[in-house]
């Protein structure tokens, strides 16, 4: 039961990540391959604040998400200059740089040793220690993210985003500052990814750079593409299936030396089949450009 709840909490965190990446990739049509970098920044900021300065996780979460959002300006900047594969490569590179900084700045982040003993959330002086309380917390944030992003995509602002995806030059001709919107969408996406990272850190209570590799970014992108580009319910489905399904492998009684690569192999195979048979994902209406 504990295990089941744990998987559900992780699913919730991935849903937040998938929704926020869908905003960038699915709705605005910008191929971003560095999403784990944002959650990494959020996670490390709020963990370090909690460990070194005793900042409560609630405030840490907000600061972490804000720092991630600011980093979105830097990581999103290439979107102004580059398109398509080149943008994918640039965001990918920035993802590796963030990972590399976290891994090598040992005096601050303890590098590959990771940060143990990150305090959990507390409500009115009560420490949240039960898993179900985290499930409620994460569910709350999933709802908040979903609601905000739904408001964004259905607003005039969201129409501009879709305009950028469908025809950038036409949107520009309508007098919209496309560059500013592109950066802004990275900032918003990064903010929510920062929340997800911070939630993860305070829930697991231990983080190390290996949780935020580029492969992680690709996994999140796979969830977006699998569920459907530009479909919010698709993001729920994509994240849920791709988190829960590989966990079933554990029940087949495989040793982890077999289960871990097998899980990745399934991801890889799924990506190939998806690209060959249904590049727009299960619920998506738009193909990758």
């Amino acid at each position: 039961m504990e295990y089941l709840l744990h998987i559900l909490v992780l699913t919730g965190i991935y849903i937040i990540l998938t929704l926020s990446l869908n905003l960038i990739v699915g709705y605005t049509g910008l191929p971003a391959l560095g999403h784990a970098a944002f959650s990494c920044i959020g996670a490390y900021t709020s963990s370090l604040l909690a460990l070194n300065m005793g900042v409560t996780p609630w405030i840490g979460l907000v600061i972490g998400a804000s720092v991630a959002a600011i980093s979105g300006i830097v990581i999103g900047y290439p979107a102004v200059r580059l398109k398509g594969d080149y943008l994918a490569l640039a965001t990918f590179g920035l993802g590796v740089i963030v990972y590399s900084i976290v891994k090598n700045w040992v005096s601050l982040t303890r590098g590959p040793m990771g940060l143990p003993g990150i305090p959990g959330f507390s409500v009115f002086g009560f420490q949240l220690s039960e898993i179900w309380s985290y499930l409620i917390l994460v569910a709350l944030f999933v709802f908040l993210t979903y609601f905000t992003i739904r408001r964004i995509v259905n607003s005039p602002f969201g129409r501009i985003l879709r305009g950028i995806r469908e025809d950038e030059i036409a949107t520009l001709a309508m007098g919209k500052d496309v560059d500013r919107y592109k950066i802004l969408i990275f900032v918003i996406g990064a903010f929510f990814a920062g929340i997800a990272g911070s939630l993860y850190a305070h829930y697991i209570t231990f983080i190390d750079p290996s949780s935020f590799t580029v492969m992680e970014s690709i996994t999140i992108l796979l969830m977006v593409v699998f569920g459907g580009m530009g479909s919010l319910s698709g993001s729920f489905i994509g994240a849920s299936i791709l988190v829960i399904f590989p966990e079933l492998l554990r029940f087949l009684g495989m040793p982890s030396s077999v289960a871990a690569p097998l899980r990745q192999m399934i991801y890889g195979l799924l990506l190939i089949i998806l690209m060959l048979k249904r590049p727009q994902g299960i619920l998506g209406r738009y193909k990758l450009r």
């Binding site: 690709i218 195979l269 990506l271």
Partner: peptide, 14 residues
Amino acid sequence: NLTFLLASFGVFIF
């Protein structure tokens, strides 16, 4: 191009 890119990622991971 992006479809190719993701498919090649899939091959890589697999």
